[in-house]
Amino acid sequence: MRKTYYVLLLLFSLLSLGGCNNDDDDNIPEIDKLPPATQTGAGTFGCLVNGEAFVETGTYFNCYYQNVDGEYYFALGAENDSHNIIRQIILGSNAAEIDSNHSYELGCFEIPHSHYGEVSFTNLMGDYFTCETDYGYLEITKLDFTNHIVSGTFEFDIEHPSTGEIIKIREGRFDTLFTQ
């Protein structure tokens, strides 16, 4: 009888431990959920959207820097299917070069020789650009043509098309490989 009691106690203890809901992620500050700011081609992208972590989930991650008819085009796109405000963020240039250790003001996609930010909001159709706001930058911290690595930081504001709220994208960082 005593042996059965200890076996049941052990079994109950193991089942209790397996049923625990460990919500340690809820206690981590949002900034600490972002990938580190590296320059190794690690394939990372993250930022804070109104203080909430947005990290590329691997569903869509693409980067290119190409010369087309003598003009340079850069685009970096990241997606997070579970974020509650923004589904996709794109940083790019329209007939404008990028270079290491340079910061670029973000403007409108439609204007040649400009750099821009673009988002797709969760549960809304369409893409929205930094044209409507006054704040935004893209800083390229590394552009390595030999190893095809581009790294940088960014921040910008974007107006939510339904509410008019200014969405603040801060502490942005990326480190990835690009195609030419």
Rank of each mutant, 00 (worst) to 15 (best):
E159W: 07
F74G: 01
E52T: 11
I85N: 01
Y135A: 08
E30Q: 15
Y135G: 00
I89L: 05
R170A: 11
L11N: 12
L17M: 14
D99H: 10
G77E: 09
I167V: 15
G19C: 13
I166E: 05
E159S: 11
I89D: 00
G51T: 06
Q180S: 10
S100H: 02
S82H: 11
L10C: 14
F129L: 06
Y6W: 14
H160P: 06
F12R: 10
D26R: 15
F61G: 06
G107W: 02
Y128V: 01
F45V: 03
E165F: 09
S13Q: 11
F121C: 04
Q88S: 12
T130F: 01
G77R: 08
L138N: 02
E97H: 09
L10P: 01
N50K: 02
S103R: 15
N62D: 15
E105F: 04
V7H: 12
H83A: 04
H113W: 07
E159V: 13
N101T: 08
V7N: 10
C108E: 10
D99L: 10
D144L: 06
D69R: 15
L8I: 12
S120E: 15
D32A: 12
D175L: 07
E97F: 08
I86Q: 01
R87L: 12
S16R: 12
I89Y: 02
E79L: 09
S100Y: 01
N22S: 10
G41H: 04
V68I: 14
E118G: 03
A96W: 03
K3S: 15
M1R: 09
G19I: 09
T38N: 09
T133W: 04
Y60N: 13
A42T: 05
T133Q: 08
L106Y: 03
F109S: 06
E139S: 12
P161A: 12
G152N: 07
D144E: 10
D127M: 13
A37F: 06
N22M: 10
G152E: 08
F45E: 01
C131Y: 06
N67D: 13
D134V: 04
S103V: 11
Y65R: 02
G58S: 07
P36R: 13
L34T: 04
S114C: 10
G58F: 05
E79G: 03
I169G: 00
E56T: 04
I85Q: 08
N62R: 12
T59M: 06
T179A: 10
S151G: 07
L106P: 03
T146Q: 13
T122K: 14
Y104S: 05
A53H: 05
Q39W: 00
T179E: 11
D32R: 14
E30A: 15
Q66W: 02
F12W: 11
N80G: 01
F174I: 06
S114K: 13
L106A: 04
F61H: 11
Y135N: 11
D24Q: 13
V119I: 08
Y116K: 07
G152T: 06
S103G: 14
M1D: 11
Q180E: 11
I89N: 01
V49W: 00
T153P: 02
E132L: 13
N84S: 14
D157K: 01
L106G: 01
G19H: 09
N62E: 13
G107R: 13
G51H: 05
F61A: 08
D157N: 15
Y73T: 06
T38H: 02
I158E: 05
L14I: 14
D25L: 15
K142C: 09
A42H: 02
G58A: 05
F178A: 02
